[in-house]
Write a protein that binds this DNA or RNA. Structure first.
Lengths: 176, 176
DNA sequence: CCGCTCATGTAACTGGTTACATGATTTA
DNA sequence: TAAATCATGTAACCAGTTACATGAGCGG
């Protein structure tokens, strides 16, 4: 069986959680996720769902709706095993290290900015992060029916954003 | 002019910093970077350098070395303007939000793991993060000739990793 | 019946990836 | 002089992206 991408594993996890569900459900899940790494575009999800089915990780039930086929996915035993193996497998160092932060990247080239520009950058980022934090807090408390797993996942976003703000203080102190 | 990718801007920044330099230098810079988002593969960098030249953002000086051509890049005025525009432009929300954390993703599906497996996950992650922190600290202090910009950038990695460890404490408390 | 959301899909593209190949130069 | 590293590149591939198209079904 071909190696699964991160997108594939996450999609499989979504199916496991929300089954029986449509590709559309999976797509919407990605789109409403607080992480923006995957856009959750139709062009990514629908072919992926097909692949999951081809690989026997999910099974699909087809129903007719007028001229169209409606597809409802459920996870198979094979899919469950693959998902759990992924979840329980030792996390490779590269995955632990796989962190992207586009703010950090820009500071690498701060040399080319004037102090004013740097201060503006720091201020803007701080404002945006604060907004994001408030929004995330609201989402954690406000959304009912949020599983503890989803809550803790969002807490991660919160804590990392707080760390990023603290880091901005360092940036300001050291480089402005 | 075509829109530049993140990789392109970063590469342009590297050229600006290290010029005159070869594509190989840029490649090695990516590979030794503490961020693993880009692999810095030859297949990405060399075509990219060509694109930068085509777009007039970098200029290249060709010298002969035996049967091969050696290329030395420097940034052009146009390139400098593009780079500074990128650096000084307001950071779009999506970029602030563009954070990937593969540990977080897994916890989303923690439901499928036993408490033991969860504890193991937390322990493993914590160990790996601690190692990473130590390594990063060493790199900050140990590497001589590290610019303050590079130092602060690495500090970001440090602070975020520390936040991730604290988050793991929450995971343990709430979910194990 | 209009507009919105649910739902499914495809075509063209893009910007990466891995893997391979090979020559030049330095150093032990 | 052999091995390592510097240096340049390409071919095949792949998993995403955007943009487009279209139909079903429901509420006002």
């Amino acid at each position: 069986m071909r190696k699964l991408s991160h997108l594939a594993y996450i999609a499989l996890g979504v199916v496991a959680e929300r089954q029986p569900c449509s590709g559309y459900t999976v797509m919407k899940d990605f789109q409403s996720s607080s992480s923006t790494y995957f856009s959750g575009s139709a062009g990514a999800i629908y072919p992926l769902m097909k692949r999951l089915e081809e690989d026997g990780l999910a099974k699909v039930e087809r129903t007719k709706a007028g001229s169209r086929t409606r597809r409802t996915y459920t996870i198979t035993d094979k899919g469950r095993i693959a998902l759990e193996a992924w979840l329980a497998s030792p996390i490779p160092d590269e995955e632990v290290a796989f962190l992207v932060d586009l703010l950090r990247t820009r500071v690498l080239f701060f040399e080319r900015l004037t102090k004013q520009q740097r201060r503006k950058f720091v201020k803007d980022c701080r404002d945006q992060l604060r907004q994001r934090i408030t929004a995330t807090q609201k989402r954690i408390k406000g959304t009912d029916g949020l599983s503890p797993f989803e809550q803790v996942t969002m807490t991660s976003v919160l804590m990392v954003d707080e760390a990023r703000i603290k880091w901005l203080d360092v940036v300001e102190k050291e480089l402005c």
